[in-house]
């Protein structure tokens, strides 16, 4: 801790061998997380995400408090919304279903798109690379940090929803889509599983955003492109004539997480979704690597 440690030359007797040995230390990853989560922008995105379940919960409460509690089951709205009044745990599922099509991937698109391009436009990329962070190491760190953000963002939505649901509505046994009844503890486990699957569903757009981020020196352009691609894909997914390509769109099976609420769990679409996300990660991850490791850093 003290100055006594500052002097030793031990860290300096570097030749290739110790450098190679320590190349995969987690120091850069930790620094990346600190840098990401200390930004006001990141905190603002998380705050917006946390606001969605609170709004939904309050809206449902107001909607149903006038009528008799049982009459809340209207037709529209995100999945599971009708069951919230009976069991606050369903607010978790509703909130995830409401944020997954747009809010969550938009937040991930902002963080992923900014990953490399933001450093380039600030000029900090050149200093990270001469430090030397190493291009592959930096890219992997950025991807790992982006996926951590996916997980944190999803958990923020789920946790706020659980807290809001517990405050406003009764908790208890959960009725699955299949009509069977499972205990509250089991329901919580399912909720956590669903949150993890939702976070994993964002892996594809994270890889896409990272690839876009290696193409430009403007963080804003990369973020806008990634969010624009998200909107485009969501629109394409709605056009019936395009059903041939729809299974390959990264958002096509996002809502399959609801299958975890069946008894027994219906795995088919879930597995297909995770496979598709893996494919996107592999394809766009490789593309980002090929681009970034060969790129002239002129910013």
């Amino acid at each position: 801790m003290s100055q006594a440690e500052a002097a030793p030359v031990g860290a300096v007797t570097v030749d290739s061998v110790p450098v190679r040995k320590r190349i995969w230390t987690l120091g850069l990853f930790r620094s990346e997380l600190v840098t990401t989560f200390r930004r006001w922008r990141t905190l603002a995105l998380l705050a917006v995400l946390a606001g969605v379940p609170i709004l939904v919960g309050i809206a449902v409460k107001i909607e149903t408090s006038g009528d008799s509690p049982a009459a809340g089951g209207g037709g529209g709205g995100p999945a599971f919304i009708a069951q919230i009044t009976n069991n606050g745990l369903f607010l978790v599922f509703t909130a995830l279903a409401a944020t997954l099509p747009f809010f969550l991937p938009m937040a991930v698109g902002v963080v992923a798109g900014d990953a490399i391009a933001g450093e380039a436009s600030a000029g900090t990329l050149r200093y990270l690379l001469v430090a030397p962070a190493g291009r592959t190491r930096l890219l992997l760190t950025k991807y790992a940090a982006t996926m951590t953000f996916c997980l944190v963002a999803t958990l923020v939505v789920a946790a706020t929803a659980l807290a809001t649901g517990a405050l406003l509505f009764p908790l208890g046994d959960v009725v699955t889509i299949s009509g069977t009844r499972i205990g509250f503890g089991e329901g919580l486990v399912r909720a956590l599983l669903i949150a993890l699957v939702v976070a994993a569903s964002l892996v594809g757009i994270a890889a896409l955003g990272l690839f876009v981020s290696t193409l430009t020196n403007s963080g804003i352009a990369a973020m806008a492109t990634t969010v624009g691609l998200l909107i485009t894909v969501q629109i394409l997914d709605q056009i019936p004539q395009l059903h041939a390509i729809q299974p390959y769109l990264f958002s096509h099976r996002w809502l399959s997480f609801a299958d975890l609420m069946r008894e027994p769990v219906y795995w088919d679409d879930l597995v297909k979704n995770l496979g598709l996300q893996g494919l996107y990660a592999a394809v766009f991850g490789s593309a980002a690597w090929a681009r970034f490791t060969a790129k002239d850093i002129t910013a």
Binding site: M1, E5, V19, R22, W24, T124, A131
Partner: peptide, 30 residues
């Protein structure tokens, strides 16, 4: 080129972390 939202000290910690040859135990002193 600096991270405007980090303090001067944290900027240096960030750059030092990027160097895999830098010993994390002596980072603050460095």
């Amino acid at each position: 080129a600096l991270y405007g939202y980090l303090s001067g000290r944290d900027n240096l910690i960030r750059y030092d972390s990027a160097d895999p040859a830098a010993d994390p135990r002596t980072r603050r002193a460095r």
